[in-house]
Computed example of a mutant assay.
Amino acid sequence: MSDITVPSPLTEPARVDPPMAADERTMLSSWLDWHRATVRRKCAGLAPEHVGASPLPASPLMTVGGIVSHLRWVEAYWFDTVMLNQPDRAPYSPEDPDAEFRVGAQRPLAELLDEYDAQCARSREITARLELGTTARKARPNPTLRWVLLHMIEETARHNGHLDVVRELADGVTGK
């Protein structure tokens, strides 16, 4: 797996490129870690007043804070809840399925990123203990760990694209 430094949200973190050739577990884990590190890069240097900014009129929940919060809870859901059948502790509910986005828009970015990093570390520990073919203990039909890793790569990459747009509209910063 990749060694990724965890800087403050005001600095741009290093990102370790995935290997060009490796076994399946290393490839999946490395690509997911690369996209996880990209989340922090997208947030580096963001002013506090932009964390909850909602620059897309048709998507008021799309804020930097909301996206980071969502990614934290998506990690928890797939690795803790689905793979290990642990209780779902996320702030959303059937009555308010988007609560993590609202909560995230109101919280300090440094706290959100620290919680995201802690959840990613937990997800890495779970991944290290299970075989890629291990089936989920909760969901039906039961996805495998391999499926969950691929889904998390897709989910995190897609939301990095959202972070690109929201960040550019909030303060003009592009790339990273």
Rank of each mutant, 00 (worst) to 15 (best):
V74R: 01
K42L: 06
Q86W: 00
Y92I: 01
P57M: 09
W73P: 00
H70I: 05
A105T: 01
D114F: 05
A90G: 15
P48K: 05
A118C: 03
R41V: 11
A44T: 03
A76Y: 09
L71E: 03
E95T: 13
D33P: 07
P97L: 08
V64Y: 06
R107N: 01
A44Y: 06
P60W: 10
I67P: 03
P55C: 08
N85F: 00
G104S: 05
Q106L: 14
A47H: 11
S30G: 15
D80S: 12
V68N: 09
A90H: 04
C43V: 10
I67Q: 06
M83D: 02
E115Q: 14
L46D: 02
W73Q: 00
R89H: 12
H70A: 08
H35G: 06
A90T: 14
M83A: 04
D114K: 12
G52R: 06
R107I: 01
W34P: 03
S29W: 08
L32T: 08
T81A: 01
L112D: 01
L112I: 03
A37M: 06
S59K: 15
M62P: 00
H70E: 04
D33L: 15
P94G: 08
Q119E: 14
Y92T: 10
A110I: 02
F79Y: 12
N85A: 15
G45V: 04
W73A: 00
E100S: 15
W73I: 00
R89W: 02
P60F: 08
F101K: 08
W78F: 14
P57D: 13
N85T: 00
I67Y: 07
M83P: 03
P97R: 12
A44W: 07
V64L: 08
V103K: 06
L84N: 06
M62I: 02
G104V: 03
R102W: 07
A53S: 14
H35W: 15
D96K: 13
E75M: 10
R89K: 11
S30W: 09
I67R: 07
V51M: 09
Y77A: 04
G52A: 12
T63R: 12
S93A: 13
C43F: 07
W34I: 03
P94F: 11
P91G: 11
Q86E: 09
W31C: 14
Y77I: 10
P97N: 12
A99C: 09
G52I: 09
S69N: 13
V74G: 03
P108R: 05
A37E: 13
N85H: 11
P108E: 07
P87I: 00
A110C: 05
L112A: 04
D80C: 12
R36A: 11
W78H: 06
L46K: 08
G104K: 05
F79T: 01
A76K: 04
R40G: 15
R41W: 15
L46N: 02
D88S: 00
Y116D: 05
D98R: 13
A105I: 10
P48A: 10
L71K: 04
E75Y: 07
L32W: 15
P60R: 14
V39D: 03
V64K: 10
L84Y: 00
R41E: 14
H50M: 13
L46V: 15
E95P: 06
A76S: 13
A37D: 13
G66P: 09
M27Y: 10
A47K: 10
P94N: 08
L84A: 01
A90N: 14
V39R: 05
V64G: 08
P87N: 02
R41F: 07
Q86P: 00
R107G: 01
G65C: 09
D117C: 10
H35C: 13
